[in-house]
Amino acid sequence: MTTTPITVVGGGLAGLTAAIAAAETGTSVRLFEAHQTLGGRGRATPPPYIAHDGAHVFYADGPHYTWLKERGFVAGLGWPALSGGFKLAFRTDARLRKLPPVGMLRAQSRRWLTAPVDVDFHSWAAGRWGERTAIQLANAISVVTYDANTGRLSAAFVWDLFQRALGPRVPAVRWVRGGWQQSIDRMAARAGELGVVIETGARVTELPTDGPVIVATELESARKLLGDESLHGTSGFAALLDLAVTKDRRDRHIVFDLDEAGFQECYTMQDDTIAPEGESLYQLQMPLRDNESRDSAHERLERLADAGIPDWRSRTTFRRTATAKNRTGALDLPGTTWRDRHAINRGGGIYLVGDMVAAPGMRGEIAINSALTAAASAVAAVQGVGQRSTR
């Protein structure tokens, strides 16, 4: 290994990706994580109920997934048994329906359309399909944005997300059996095999000066560590509810809430290892409206559960509530794209990675793609120093 080390601050998905990518080149890497365990937002609750801080699926239609797959980090996929009573519903006008509204179906089929960057999604969609359909489209894709007013975002940004998640093509969604914790554990093991020196319970308050540094923390922590007050971003804010219930044939596996932008998904439909036998594990989310209290959002969340999981209160075996603020990846406002986000290369051998920086993708994909870019640049910097020192 090279003697000049690369330091990675943060042991979540981005930090582990950066550490592995750099160490694979033979470069010396050390990783510091403030918590006692690795994983960041990829961590999950311990068995028998394995629940995450938000929706955790991989999309297998980008370079990030290829990188993960080549290393075995996403091996052992779970698949829903579509022939076994899979139930999908759309909540419209306070009722659950098996099919989305006609206006939404029309929009879904228009994969060839290109939406403008500099116009908000609601204005663009309303001009094509009407006010009501524009609201329903935005609420449907709030499962990705965690934003109660997704229509205010760039039309190009939202339309791309909508087509990836709800377009006419079969979605490239992948679920690793055991959840993201399984992938995180595999990544941590691989980092150790490559010789990455990992220190947990080690909070970094000053930047090391003996080599490149990759900062892979949440933006607020990065702002303090780098002393850069410009590091702010637009992200979602949602109430979360994890529920395990005894199985009932009336339960809906997936519900898109076109009325209030909520979402419900049963994760045990594709992975029966994350809850005890005979039970179903759900996660529901509801984005907070402007000036709305958390309690109010959770009340709306429970009403969604009432519709999709009848009598859930009397059947509950596990329950956890939470909120996710600024944890859903960057959201692009009108006139901006991912290229306008915070630069990865901060100069002076400092690199910023995570889901809020200038890399393509959505949520965790941004973290992986930015980490790979930063690792390549940091390794090139180290190798350049090594070449000069041997002349």
Rank of each mutant, 00 (worst) to 15 (best):
I344V: 12
V379R: 07
G364K: 02
A343R: 15
A374G: 05
G386S: 10
Q383P: 02
G347Q: 12
A376C: 04
A380D: 14
V385E: 15
D340F: 04
V385L: 15
V379K: 05
I366D: 02
G347V: 10
L372K: 01
R341E: 14
G386M: 02
R363Y: 12
A374S: 03
G349N: 04
N369Q: 11
A376P: 00
T337H: 06
R363Q: 13
A375G: 08
G335M: 07
Q383A: 13
A343C: 06
D340V: 01
I368Q: 01
S370M: 00
A343V: 10
M362Q: 14
R346M: 10
T336M: 05
I350T: 13
S370C: 01
P334L: 12
M356I: 01
W338F: 12
V353D: 00
A378N: 05
T373N: 05
A381P: 00
G386L: 07
R363H: 15
G348N: 11
T373E: 14
M362V: 12
D355C: 01
A374Q: 03
D340H: 11
A380R: 09
L372T: 01
E365K: 04
T337S: 09
Q383R: 15
A376T: 13
H342G: 01
I366P: 02
A367L: 00
T336A: 09
G361F: 12
V382C: 03
A371S: 13
Q383L: 15
G354K: 10
N345K: 10
A376Q: 14
M362K: 06
A380W: 03
M356A: 06
A358Q: 06
G354W: 09
I366V: 13
R341W: 13
G348K: 11
A381Y: 02
R339G: 10
A376L: 04
Q383W: 11
S370V: 00
P360D: 04
G349V: 04
M356Y: 15
N345R: 13
G349R: 01
A371Y: 09
A380H: 08
G347H: 09
G384W: 14
V379G: 02
I344E: 00
N369P: 00
D355Y: 05
G361Q: 11
A376D: 15
V353S: 00
A358V: 00
M356Q: 12
N345E: 14
R339Y: 02
A343W: 06
H342C: 01
V385I: 12
P334H: 14
A376K: 14
A374E: 08
A375W: 03
G348A: 10
V379Q: 08
R341I: 10
E365V: 07
D340L: 01
A358N: 05
V379Y: 05
D355R: 01
A359L: 03
D355M: 01
G348M: 08
A374L: 03
E365I: 07
L372M: 02
V382M: 05
R346K: 14
A378I: 05
I350E: 06
R346G: 10
A371D: 08
W338C: 08
A376I: 00
N369I: 00
V379E: 06
I350W: 07
P360K: 02
G361H: 11
G386Q: 13
G349P: 10
N369Y: 05
L352K: 08
T373D: 11
A343H: 12
I368P: 03
S370Q: 02
I344F: 08
A378F: 05
D340Y: 07
P360H: 05
R346L: 10
Y351A: 09
